[in-house]
Write a protein that binds this DNA or RNA. Structure first.
Lengths: 208, 208
DNA sequence: TCATCCAGTTAACAACTGTTCTCTGGAATT
DNA sequence: AATTCCAGAGAACAGTTGTTAACTGGATGA
């Protein structure tokens, strides 16, 4: 079913990806609402009007970036929460996984953190929808756990949102610590680990 | 010691406040990094060059807005955490207080949520510093509680950050629910209450 | 092979940006 | 009363912006 794209379609997708990459780089030092169309085309090395062949507006480009940044992350989140083992091990693994993802894709993480509450409505909406999906997936995994017996669906979703928000806060802290010394990242790891631990303890005594 | 300002100084402060107000309004639909100097002066009804009499740049204006939005909030946070009574009552009161603040100052809350991870470094730094202060103040209040015996300073600060971040997340949710029906705000209240409850439970069993 | 398609180009548009320098008129100081 | 000060005005600057229209030339499909 994997139809080899024609030369034309392939070249178009290549240019489109160049737009996304250039935009992501430019967005490291500004917000999407100040990103100019000409600014992006200049960075790609293409005429300003070429932009319209791929996106209706910079907001449209932003929505595409949300999909790139979060779309491929769902499998990872699923397996993170569902991995078996001691809860302490699971926490450590989750924190390391976040740290690794931030180190591997800092610009993507920065973009999501920045535009989650940013000045472009369609982008905020796209991020909100993806995070909602994350929360529901986390909830589904939590429901499998033997600890979840007696929990209402509402409470499970409440906990899932707590975990998802905590994941974003932690990612943002790792991002700030990226340029600094290893010691700084170690501090974030310790902080995030203990916060997750406290939440997990609360989870364990929820039904008392 | 309250020296009555001269006509001149008074008028200057009035204009300065007009800049802050106009900027805050404009920032409801965009980020600071896209806010133009001329845009603000136009909204105030003053010549573009007048801007420089008050601020070096829009980033400078942003820092002033951070102080306006968060500077006067410290007493409130202090009393919120320290109020006596059942922990369940305290949680309910804290959530209501957040809801009230968001309803009273939505633009300020939106500005902080947006620019906390926004594209203007000095503003991010100013917000970070204020939130650090909040966390330390919350920690100081937590330390007074009998429940805090046996807790290390590090763990208290960890918990304080958890509360502060949770406060911001809740404020942001109330903001999104502002335009919607009362029912929506009720949903946020229930969610935030239960999340705080879970954290508080975790706190109670931390030393087990 | 030939007609069609379409990603990217070129040129031009009115409108906008931040910043400079010079000026003004009323408040503040002496 | 005479002088200094200074918040704001005015005009001009070189650059920038998004969007339009008409185009080119190589890939595509008949």
């Amino acid at each position: 079913m994997s139809h080899t794209l024609g030369i034309r379609q392939a070249q178009k997708q290549k240019t489109r990806q160049a737009f996304l990459d250039a935009a992501l780089t430019l967005l490291e030092e500004q917000s999407l609402s100040s990103l100019g169309l000409r600014e992006v085309t200049r960075a790609v090395g293409v005429a300003p009007t070429a932009f319209y062949r791929h996106f209706r507006s910079t907001a449209d480009l932003g929505v595409a970036l949300v999909d790139e940044a979060l779309g491929s992350l769902h499998p990872m989140v699923r397996t993170t929460v569902s991995t078996t083992g001691d809860s302490e091990e699971r926490i450590a693994r989750a924190v390391e996984l976040i740290a690794g993802h931030v180190a591997a894709h800092p610009a993507h993480v920065r973009f999501i953190a920045r535009e989650r509450h940013g000045g472009v409505q369609p982008v905020r909406e796209a991020i909100r929808a993806q995070l909602q999906r994350f929360a529901e997936e986390v909830k589904a995994e939590l429901a499998k756990d033997p600890e979840a017996v007696g929990w209402s669906d509402d409470d499970l979703l409440m906990l899932a949102h707590l975990y998802v928000d905590q994941m974003l806060i932690t990612a943002s802290l790792f991002l700030e610590a990226l340029e600094g010394p290893e010691e700084e990242r170690e501090r974030v790891t310790r902080l995030a680990t203990r916060q997750l631990r406290l939440i997990t303890i609360g989870r364990g005594h929820w039904l008392d």
